[in-house]
Nucleic acid binder design. Structure first.
Lengths: 160, 160
DNA sequence: CGACTTGTTCGGTATTGACCGAACTTAAAG
DNA sequence: CTTTAAGTTCGGTCAATACCGAACAAGTCG
């Protein structure tokens, strides 16, 4: 295969990236590989071979990734084996997960304000600002996702 | 102080939250405390006492937090000691840091596409979609921050 | 000069968790 | 019923790192 070194480097970079945002390195490598492999659906044994990781690690990582809906199981007619591929909406999933952090932050600010009930308005300012900013983002960000969905359709990315 | 238990619980939740997004638990607790303390600026020794952590841990965590511009050093006239408080723009900093993840993903997709130069258009689709979606978010998200800045001014949050 | 205050750095410990290999399940094929 | 293939679970190991205490540095009072 051409550019195999570049492909493997890409896979490693995915490993590092996703490790940095809370997944394991192996899970990130799997995502990287599933983004560039041919065909786009792969067996566990394919991944074991391509990534040089153990069967057990691949198994666990795939379980995590499917639970997060980043990767989905896939079957071929007449084939009893299970394939895996990146899920169609993995990126909106990722963005929504990030947005959940914002929701958590807003909730956190509200818990903080409860604790400051008896205190001066002055003292509550920091948390009120935190709450309002996160509430704003929580309200506006989904609109961005909707806007992207529209563009996506317009560009014919539907069937990805 | 009223509701001290609730305040401490809030501090712990901040610790867990920020630990979950890449900081240390102590750094998260410091942020939590600095969000609710009175006065809003605190000495290292205040934090040591309030959080029950060691001097060294507080020192290191504060160094990290100031490097990230989430917390800033603060001085009082006639007082040679150094105080710390949450930085005015800590939340936009946080959002910008998150946006940087999007920039990284876009870059990653481009590196992947380089590796697929010799391959079929079909095979490039996954990465092209990844690139385009992240480019879209990278372009649109700053507008949200700008919009919030405007609202912030309108609400008189300027001087926070 | 001492004595104290404030803060940083360093070494060690202890926890966490990612990963692997091997044992164990399940089920299909011969 | 045995054999082979496919996948999960378990126990152990190894690496990373957060945190602490103690030693160290710098500066400020008496």
């Amino acid at each position: 295969m051409e550019n195999m070194d570049k492909k493997l480097r890409f896979v490693e970079e995915c490993g590092l990236y996703f490790e940095g945002v809370g997944l394991t390195r192996i899970a990130g490598r799997i995502i990287g590989w599933l983004l560039i492999c041919d065909p786009p659906h792969q067996l566990q044994s394919d991944l074991v071979e391509a990534l040089g990781a153990s069967k057990s690690s691949i198994s666990v990582a795939l379980k995590d990734l499917t639970t997060l809906y980043l990767v989905e199981r896939f079957a071929l007619p007449g084939d009893r084996r299970t394939f895996y591929r990146t899920s169609k909406d993995m990126w909106s999933r990722s963005f929504r997960a990030r947005m959940h952090q914002v929701t958590d932050l807003k909730a956190l600010s509200e818990r903080g304000l409860e604790a400051l009930q008896e205190d001066t308005p002055q003292r509550k300012q920091r948390l009120e600002f935190m709450r309002d900013m996160n509430a704003f983002m929580e309200a506006e960000f989904p609109k961005l996702l909707d806007a992207w969905d529209a563009i996506k359709k317009a560009r014919g990315y539907d069937d990805l």
